[in-house]
């Protein structure tokens, strides 16, 4: 499990870092794929990793993995929506800046995760 978490962390960080330059320049298909992935799952995946939402090995607590995936996607989409909406209402519309904010948020969550104690698992009643 720890190695799986590391791979997901590295992949999320790579997408977040790559999205910053790609939000300004690059081949259209690559930009769409990377920025789309960031908006779909970037900040949420980093958040879920931070929360230590590991699936415990008990029958009662199953459902933690699908819940983690659902929260990762829903939080990412919600944050993308709120950042874009805030820019519109503040009359500061700049899609590349919005993507940079999402990237920084993702990297910040991943940074906090590095500093947290490693074995704090979700308990189930």
């Amino acid at each position: 499990m720890p190695s799986e978490r590391s791979y997901v962390s590295y992949a999320t960080a790579a997408v977040a870092v790559a999205a910053i330059p790609l939000s300004f320049v690059g081949p259209e298909g690559l930009r769409l794929a990377v920025i789309g992935l960031l908006m779909l799952a970037g900040p949420g995946t980093a958040l879920v990793l931070l929360l230590r939402f590991d699936p415990p090995r008990s029958a009662q607590a199953t459902g933690a993995l699908p819940l983690s995936i659902a929260i990762a996607i829903a939080f990412s989409l919600a944050m993308s929506t709120l950042v874009a909406t805030a820019m519109i209402y503040a009359r500061l519309w700049s899609p590349p800046a919005g993507v940079c904010i999402l990237s920084i948020l993702t990297l910040a969550f991943l940074g906090i995760e590095l500093k947290r104690p490693k074995r704090v698992l979700v308990r189930a009643k």
């Binding site: 930009r31 769409l32 993308s80 709120l82």
Partner: peptide, 17 residues
Amino acid sequence: WPGFFNLLGMLSGASGA
């Protein structure tokens, strides 16, 4: 209720698609 369209707009604007 523009939230969802803002999301798509940001994707389109930032990716150049």
